[in-house]
Structure formats: C-alpha cells, structure tokens
Nucleic acid binder design. Structure first.
Lengths: 196, 196
DNA sequence: CTTCAGGAATGAAGTAGATTAGGAAAAGAA
DNA sequence: TTCTTTTCCTAATCTACTTCATTCCTGAAG
C-alpha cells in the first residue's frame, strides 16, 4: 500500500470519504524521510506541522530542571505526533520530537490543515474526532498516573501496547510511565523469577 | 447576563457567530439546577450530556481499588464537565461527577450536540477547538505530573487557578494534584512559617 | 448550648521509588 | 576486528510521600 492509500484508509475509519475527497485529503500531506536521532521539533521553535507515521517510530519529550528527560508521547505506524500545545496555538514548542529509528513520515502543515478544514466539513469533522480521541487517551493516562503504582502502570502498558513495550529501549518506556529505568528493570526481573 | 447570553459570548471567543447563529446555538442547551452533593454522572451509566457551568462548582472523580478517591477534573463558572470517555464514545462511565455547591448548569445532550454539528460548519469548528484546548490542557497536566514534585505542583496550581485553590476543600485539591490531604496540609503550613 | 459531621492539623512510623555507583553486554562506527 | 557508545542490570543507601492514629475546628441541626 502506498502512503496515499494508507492515510485515506486511516481517515475513512473516522469519516466516510468519496474517492475524490480521499485524494484531496492525501494531497495535503508531504512525505518526509528522517534518520534515527534526527529532530523534527525543538524547543523555542514553533511546530509548524503535525506528523503521521507511515513507517518507523518517534518520541516526544521534555527536559526538566535537573536535566532529566520525560517522555510525553510515543508514536509508531499510524500514530500522530507533534508538540500539540505548540502546533494548535502556533506558539514556541517546549518539547523535542526525535526519530527513534529511520522513519517515513507524512507531514501536514498547519496551513494545509486549515485549508482542508475550510474546504470540506468532513475534514473538519475528522480533526475534531482526532482531537476527541486524544482527549480520551490522555484522560486514561491521567487516571492511570493518579490511581496506579509503577508496577501496575507497566503491566497495563505491556498489556495494551505489547508491540511498543519491546520496540523502544527501556529508558524510554520508564520515562513515559513516570519512573526511573533502574526501577523498571527491577519490576521486569521480579516478574520473571518470583522464586529462585 | 442571562444564560443564553453567557453561552453565546463564550462561543464567540472561539468562532464568530451571527445573532441568529448564537440563538440557535444557545437553544440546544437546557438549564439544570443541582444541589450540593447531587450526582449528575455515575459509573456504569452512559453520560448522555456534557455540562457548562453557569454558576457553582463540580468535581469529577474515580474510586480506586482500595476505595481511594482521585479527582480527575474540577469545574467552576464557564468550564465544561462530563466523563468525556463515556460521553464521546457513548459507553458506560467510570467516573462520578458531583456538585460541590448548589449549581446552575447548562446541559447539552449528545444528540443536541450532533445536531448542532450537522447544521452548521461553525459549530463543528467550535467543538473541534474545544477538544483541542482540552488536549493542550491535559498535556500540560501530564507534563506537570511527570516533571514536578508535589510541592511544585501545588504552587503552580495556586498560581494558575487561585480562585479554585480556596474554593474547593483541601482534600479535593490534594486528590486532584495526586497527593494525600495530609501532605498538602504540611506543604501549606510550611509555606506560611519557615521561621517561628 | 449541645451534638454531630465534615474537614484540617500534627506527629510517628513505614514504604515505594529515586539516587548513586558499579560494571556487563549489545550495537554501531571505524 | 577493535573501539566507543548506548543500553541494561544489581545492590546499597536515601527521601519524598503515604499511612495511621489522634486531636482540633467549625458550622449546621437538634
């Protein structure tokens, strides 16, 4: 399947599109290849685009006061990524977004997105649904961080996203779940051998 | 200002509306009076509506395994509240939403909202922007919970929402910020008298 | 003027998880 | 291959925060 087909299929999961509308939608995107460790968003620069992952994986993170790194979002195939606070309000970013592997992205600029939304009610609906899904996803993450222990959060994560749990290095998972890599290591090894 | 004017003014902060459109928008809402300690959403029931607070205050929370209560969202005048996971997908709720004071709400049912969005592109845009703002808000909360200590989270909260900090009882603030009421008490009193 | 309930303060003891410091093993790069 | 960098593990100590138990405070209801 080519990139255009992928994004059209994806969009059709949320809104019905005619073939013509599908093409129009896909035409707003631009392919972008990035290499491992390449940044696509950096603090102080405004995020001009959001990205749909066709292939590969990325990670969004912030650096805390004492230089500690906290993963805000992960993305693999068919996920979106950006610094949304920056993208939505077109203000300077606070986050880094970096490629974890050589990746192929579909870039959508803020301008192109605006144009799409103006052109067709269906596209506006699509982005509304996308945002609502993010709200639901983030709310689940907030509930998890309030109600569960480090171990429970990890178990839940592995259960829901087994593909990610072994695709990303451990320090990334740990900082996504809000714990240190050492502690995650302990959890992982405890699970294997409760008895010698 | 009457409720209709309030909601129209509010909507106009996000999208321009003619007088006629404003009236049409406001007509989708229904006034609802609730008394302190009254529930408007309960687990296992589907949240059929979202609520705009005209007057008063509410609190959304979940009950954890060991009966501990975790505040997910707070709402005062001009804020929205619901169990969004339930509302958006029209699935059974996990949360309680309860009035903290006698309140006056503007209720918008899922059906009415759908109708609005179908009727006019502007209304669809409005709800898209509302969802995007929630995403940005929640992302900030996630970053705060990952990067800051209990004390820092409290200071930030007081700074950004001073009105809320003293309107809600301490145990509500504590459970919203992810700490115990005892610990928040300690933080508060430490700040006042670093020296006798 | 009591009584009672919801909320806040305080202190002692316990624990989940962080920090620090060691080194081993994969994985790239040359 | 060898060198370097990145990732992972183990274990001891440390601390931010919880838990538990008790007392105090305030306002509303009888």
């Amino acid at each position: 399947m080519n990139p255009q087909e992928i994004i059209i299929n994806y969009a059709r999961k949320l809104v019905p599109l005619t073939d013509e509308e599908g093409e129009q939608f896909a035409a707003a995107f631009k392919e972008q290849r990035v290499k491992k460790r390449q940044f696509i968003i950096q603090p102080d620069f405004t995020a001009k685009s959001r990205y749909f992952v066709l292939n590969g994986s990325l990670r969004a993170y912030v650096i805390g006061e004492e230089g500690q790194d906290h993963t805000i979002q992960l993305a693999v195939e068919e996920w979106w990524i950006s610094d949304y606070n920056s993208y939505i309000f077109q203000q300077p970013a606070r986050m880094f977004v970096i490629a974890m592997e050589d990746s192929l992205l579909f870039q959508l600029t803020h301008e192109q997105e605006s144009r799409l939304k103006d052109e067709n009610h269906k596209f506006e609906t699509f982005f509304r649904m996308l945002a609502e899904r993010s709200v639901a996803f983030m709310q689940r993450r907030i509930i998890s961080s309030l109600t569960q222990s480090a171990e429970e959060r990890y178990e839940l994560f592995v259960e829901k996203y087994p593909a990610m749990a072994y695709r990303f290095p451990q320090y990334v998972i740990a900082s996504y779940l809000g714990m240190t890599t050492e502690f995650l290591s302990k959890i992982r090894n405890q699970r294997v051998k409760p008895k010698s």
